[in-house]
Simulated scan of single mutants.
Amino acid sequence: MSNDLGALVRSELFKRKMKQKELAEMLGISSVYLSDIINGRKDGPKAQEHIKHIRKILNV
């Protein structure tokens, strides 16, 4: 996930008063793994699928 997209996700979570842990639960992944995706430490095919779901959930 690019830095811009990571910042966008954090911004959307803040606007919705939602925690990363809540988003991770919605995605069925750990909050640590979600953090790795958001911060660009994970970017493989599986992470790309999760990014699609993140975009859909947050409408970004």
Results as ranks from 00 to 15, higher is better:
residue 15 K to T: 08
residue 18 M to H: 05
residue 18 M to I: 02
residue 39 N to Q: 02
residue 9 V to A: 01
residue 29 I to Q: 00
residue 18 M to S: 06
residue 53 H to F: 09
residue 4 D to A: 13
residue 55 R to A: 10
residue 55 R to C: 15
residue 26 M to Q: 14
residue 28 G to W: 00
residue 48 Q to S: 12
residue 6 G to E: 00
residue 16 R to D: 03
residue 47 A to N: 02
residue 33 Y to L: 03
residue 50 H to C: 09
residue 6 G to L: 03
residue 14 F to R: 15
residue 58 L to F: 13
residue 33 Y to A: 03
residue 51 I to T: 06
residue 2 S to Y: 14
residue 55 R to L: 15
residue 36 D to T: 03
residue 31 S to D: 13
residue 8 L to N: 12
residue 23 L to N: 00
residue 46 K to V: 11
residue 19 K to Y: 05
residue 26 M to W: 08
residue 39 N to D: 06
residue 18 M to K: 08
residue 13 L to S: 05
residue 24 A to I: 03
residue 31 S to V: 12
residue 57 I to Q: 10
residue 55 R to E: 15
residue 9 V to G: 01
residue 54 I to A: 03
residue 4 D to I: 13
residue 60 V to H: 11
residue 40 G to Y: 08
residue 56 K to I: 10
residue 23 L to G: 00
residue 7 A to T: 15
residue 50 H to V: 03
residue 45 P to A: 00
residue 35 S to E: 01
residue 5 L to A: 06
residue 14 F to C: 11
residue 7 A to H: 15
residue 28 G to P: 01
residue 1 M to Q: 07
residue 57 I to D: 07
residue 14 F to G: 09
residue 17 K to Y: 10
residue 26 M to E: 10
residue 49 E to F: 07
residue 31 S to H: 12
residue 41 R to E: 06
residue 47 A to T: 01
residue 39 N to M: 01
residue 43 D to T: 14
residue 25 E to P: 13
residue 9 V to I: 08
residue 9 V to H: 04
residue 4 D to V: 15
residue 25 E to W: 10
residue 55 R to G: 10
residue 48 Q to W: 08
residue 20 Q to M: 14
residue 12 E to V: 12
residue 16 R to M: 05
residue 8 L to P: 07
residue 1 M to S: 08
residue 15 K to D: 11
residue 3 N to Q: 15
residue 43 D to I: 11
residue 34 L to C: 00
residue 60 V to T: 13
residue 1 M to L: 06
residue 23 L to Q: 06
residue 26 M to V: 05
residue 22 E to V: 11
residue 26 M to Y: 08
residue 31 S to C: 14
residue 60 V to Y: 14
residue 59 N to I: 07
residue 14 F to W: 12
residue 29 I to G: 00
residue 47 A to Y: 01
residue 50 H to Y: 15
residue 33 Y to V: 02
residue 22 E to M: 11
residue 5 L to E: 10
residue 47 A to S: 00
residue 59 N to M: 10
residue 30 S to V: 02
residue 32 V to K: 06
residue 47 A to V: 00
residue 10 R to G: 06
residue 24 A to T: 07
residue 36 D to Q: 14
residue 59 N to F: 11
residue 16 R to P: 03
residue 52 K to P: 07
residue 37 I to C: 00
residue 37 I to D: 02
residue 52 K to T: 07
residue 55 R to P: 02
residue 49 E to Q: 07
residue 41 R to S: 06
residue 53 H to C: 13
residue 51 I to C: 02
residue 23 L to T: 04
residue 42 K to P: 09
residue 47 A to D: 00
residue 27 L to R: 01
residue 40 G to W: 11
residue 17 K to G: 12
residue 39 N to W: 04
residue 53 H to Y: 10
residue 60 V to W: 12
residue 37 I to H: 05
residue 37 I to S: 04
residue 32 V to T: 11
residue 52 K to C: 06
residue 51 I to F: 04
residue 10 R to S: 14
residue 32 V to M: 05
residue 33 Y to M: 02
residue 42 K to G: 07
residue 19 K to T: 08
residue 25 E to C: 15
residue 45 P to G: 01
residue 36 D to E: 14
residue 8 L to D: 12
residue 43 D to W: 11
residue 46 K to G: 07
residue 41 R to D: 01
residue 35 S to P: 04
